[in-house]
Simulated scan of single mutants.
Amino acid sequence: MTKKTKTADNSAVSGENQSLKTRQLIDDQYKSFLEDFQGIAYRMDPHWKPVFFHGAVKQITGYGENDLLNLKPDWYDIVHPDDLPELKQKYQSREFRKPGFKAQREYRILTKKGNQRWINDSIQSVFDESGNLVFIEGVIFDLTERKLAEERLRKSEAKYRELSEQLAETNNLKDLLLDVITHDLRNAAGNIFGFTSLLKELNPNLEFVNNIESSSLALLNVIDNASTLAKISAGEKIDMFPLDLTETLKDSLEEFGPMNGKGMVEIKARLQEKLMVKANPIISQVFKNYVSNAIKYAFEGLLVIVEAYKEEDHVKVTVKDFGTTILEENRKIIFERRVTLDRSRKLGSGLGLAIVKKIADIHDAEVWVEPNHPTGNIFCLRIKAMD
């Protein structure tokens, strides 16, 4: 054998060894990939007889790779009976046997223990050079957790949709009830007011007639306010009028007259004259709530000061008390629904300041509370002044 021939043979052996090493490396990498692969890679013959299964076969199906290879007659054995007709129709159609066919389906299988699992099955058809279907290959991933989460979400959505419908129906009934009550109360209060006005003309000096007249008028205002508050709660617009806040404050403070200077509390009013704003009369509820809270929760000071004045292009109203100062972290949340800071006194439902916030919002006004000195609180309202 010549030296040249030996060299050629050595080169051939060396090349073959290198090829074997490369194939071994590829095989090792493929096995490593399959060990970490969370799905199933598979191949079927044209009649859906399994050729191989690799990957998380046991974790997803409960079967070993050899179990699936020996399934008789085919893969369809483990497909859920409810999903099988549609799957067969799709995968045995003419489209399935055309070159370039690819499809993706979500369906259920039954594991070896009979448990139901959802899978995503992505497949493609592979053809030879003559256009004959050679095999089907694909990848399967487990969708069970996702499907269970979607089902829980659907049930939750259905539940809350039903609750929402019930709430809407309740709100409609509430609105109807409010309309009936306010209508009937207005009629009764209107009749009382009309008769007392007539009695007043006949007997102008009877004090109790004057009291009945003023009380019936106050009741009519309460009814109007209830209707307006219902509109505000529903997010509806309310009518706005030119309003003198000074006069509105004076009228509001009259309700606290029996308490003022009678040893219960002293209310001092420092009001700038003619403070015109565009507002609904319901804004008086802001001041009444402020003063009422000052009396209820700050009785230690026995003094409430109400001030109103022009501040650039706004009107500012403040109600000062000298009781216990509200902590800084609570100064915003007290305007939220059903928040009361001192439940031991049981003096309210926690709705008052939430109503104040709603009334302020619909007027594009601001409400807040800040500390008074040396102790107590200052409840504030700022609203745009009329030009």
Rank of each mutant, 00 (worst) to 15 (best):
S197M: 11
E311R: 07
T196K: 05
R186S: 12
P242K: 01
D142C: 07
E312F: 05
Q38F: 02
G257E: 11
R343Q: 08
E145N: 11
A298D: 13
I378S: 04
S130C: 10
F33G: 04
N372Y: 04
W368F: 15
V51T: 06
G114A: 01
D321R: 02
E311T: 03
G194K: 13
N17R: 10
D244P: 07
S197F: 01
R94M: 00
D27A: 10
L381T: 13
E307K: 14
K332A: 11
L327A: 15
N377C: 02
Y42G: 11
S14Y: 13
Q29S: 13
V367M: 09
E370K: 11
S125F: 02
A149V: 15
E157V: 02
A234S: 10
I333D: 03
V209H: 06
E311A: 09
N330F: 02
L177S: 15
T5K: 15
F101I: 05
S216T: 05
G376Y: 09
L341I: 12
L167Q: 04
F322A: 07
G114K: 03
V222E: 15
P281Y: 10
D82A: 12
A360K: 04
M276A: 05
A149M: 13
F33E: 10
L253A: 07
N205M: 05
E300G: 09
I355S: 13
E35G: 01
T2M: 07
V319T: 15
K155I: 01
M259Q: 06
N205P: 00
F195H: 03
D28T: 15
D77P: 00
H314D: 08
N210A: 07
Q124E: 13
T325L: 06
D45V: 10
Q104R: 12
F299N: 13
K384D: 00
L143M: 12
L87K: 01
E336G: 06
T340S: 11
E16S: 12
R117G: 08
N225K: 13
I282W: 04
E366I: 11
N260S: 00
A294N: 04
G55Y: 12
V367W: 02
E151V: 03
V209C: 03
K320G: 00
H80N: 13
S130G: 08
Q92H: 10
A149P: 00
S292P: 02
V57N: 00
